[in-house]
Amino acid sequence: MRVLALDYGSARCGCALSDPTGTLATPIEHIERPGTRKGLVRVADLAREREVGRIVVGLPLRLSGEDSDQTRETREWAERLKARVAPIPVELYDERFTTRIAARSSDTKTSEDSRAAAVLLDDWLALHGSELA
């Protein structure tokens, strides 16, 4: 089963996709303005085109673990996405530090947002990948 990871931001949504075995995470092209109707449709279409079995949305918590305005916006967007892609499960996953780690990458072929989504997905797969088999 493929997993799609999303690093939501109002300007861009970074995207990463796992291989069918749930072993590798690969950054793919980001989606512009995902909070718009058109952007949300594009994310849902991507999930269906790539035949994903689960979507993981990065949750930008504060370092203290508390919510911020961005956290609340991400939660609301994830709920809208969940309604759009049902029955594909959508879950939130702590994404603290993913953007910093992605910024250190020398890969310039994909956006920093999609590299952050790949870091998020790598972390998620390390914890949950065995459940995919």
Rank of each mutant, 00 (worst) to 15 (best):
R115D: 01
R80H: 10
T21R: 14
E76V: 04
R75I: 09
V119D: 03
E49P: 00
T98N: 03
W124S: 07
V90W: 05
S64Y: 01
L92Y: 06
L63H: 10
A5S: 13
L6H: 00
H30Q: 15
L63Y: 03
W77C: 12
E29P: 04
K82L: 11
G14I: 04
C15A: 12
R72K: 14
A117I: 04
R48P: 05
D113E: 07
S114W: 13
V85H: 00
D7K: 01
S114L: 04
E51I: 00
P87A: 12
L17Q: 09
A126S: 13
L81K: 09
D45V: 04
R100S: 14
E95C: 08
L40K: 05
S64P: 02
R115E: 03
E73M: 11
S18A: 12
L132N: 13
I101N: 05
E51C: 05
H30P: 13
I31H: 09
A133S: 15
T98Y: 04
I31P: 08
W77N: 11
T21L: 14
S106W: 11
T99K: 07
L92P: 06
A118S: 06
R100N: 12
D94S: 06
D19C: 09
H30I: 00
A16Y: 09
D94L: 00
G53I: 08
L120G: 08
C13F: 06
G9K: 04
L121F: 09
R80P: 00
P20L: 08
T21I: 00
R37Q: 13
L125A: 06
S106K: 14
L17F: 11
P60T: 02
P34M: 08
R75K: 15
D107F: 04
L125P: 04
R104P: 03
G129Y: 04
E49F: 06
R84Q: 15
A47K: 05
L4C: 08
E131S: 15
V52Q: 03
V52N: 01
V43R: 01
L120I: 10
D94G: 06
L132C: 08
L46S: 00
Y8I: 11
F97P: 08
G58L: 02
E91P: 01
K109A: 11
D67E: 15
A47W: 02
A117Y: 07
L17A: 09
R42A: 14
L132Q: 09
E49V: 02
L6S: 00
D69W: 01
R96P: 08
D113Y: 10
G9R: 03
R75A: 06
R96D: 07
A78L: 00
K82E: 15
A102G: 05
C15L: 11
C15Y: 03
R100I: 09
E49I: 01
E66G: 11
L120W: 06
S68A: 09
